[in-house]
Amino acid sequence: MEVIPLGPLGRAVRFVALAGGLAFTLVPVLWVASLALRPAGAVTFPVSLLPPSLTLENLRTILFTDLGIGPRPYLNAAFYGISCGVITAIISLMGGYALVRYDLAFGRALLLVFLALNFLPAAARLIPLFLLYVQLGLYDTQLGVPGPRRWHAGSCCRWRCRGCSWSRRSPSSTAGTRSRCRSS
């Protein structure tokens, strides 16, 4: 069932909006993909959206020859992504649970600070983290890579974990807390 019922004119406007939105969204991606898949020397102005012929030569050069980057960046991305996810999930779950489970006097203020921190550009953490990394000897090491991202994602995830824990908090658990029951 449609949320908003539309007449013929409304359907036409919807079609135009969706077609325009899809074109705006997908054309830049498809165009870059078409640049990657066209032969070297076929990139001359005006560059068409569709390549004159398809080739995987550029991808082969990038991945499997000495001129390319090899698989290392992909391994780095996997290490970086997985470690960020795991560390952020563990710390944020603990922090979010504690904030919702215990009615801390400064809990709301702390959540507000977490929210504000989430609004800050990742670049704003660069200075102190850079100095901290230099002091700890983690600067320019693979081990130190997940850290800055974790700092960025942490506050946001803690806020969401708190919201999620709050919505899942059962009435009996709330009643227990109100009756001064201990978590153990």
Binding site: I91, V113, F114, L117, A124, R125, I127, P128, L129, L131, L132, W151, G154, S155, R158
Partner: peptide, 13 residues
């Protein structure tokens, strides 16, 4: 502590 440390550092610097 973990989250606030970089910002405290920025404030100090």
């Amino acid at each position: 502590m973990l989250v606030l440390l970089p910002y405290a550092g920025a404030l100090l610097f």
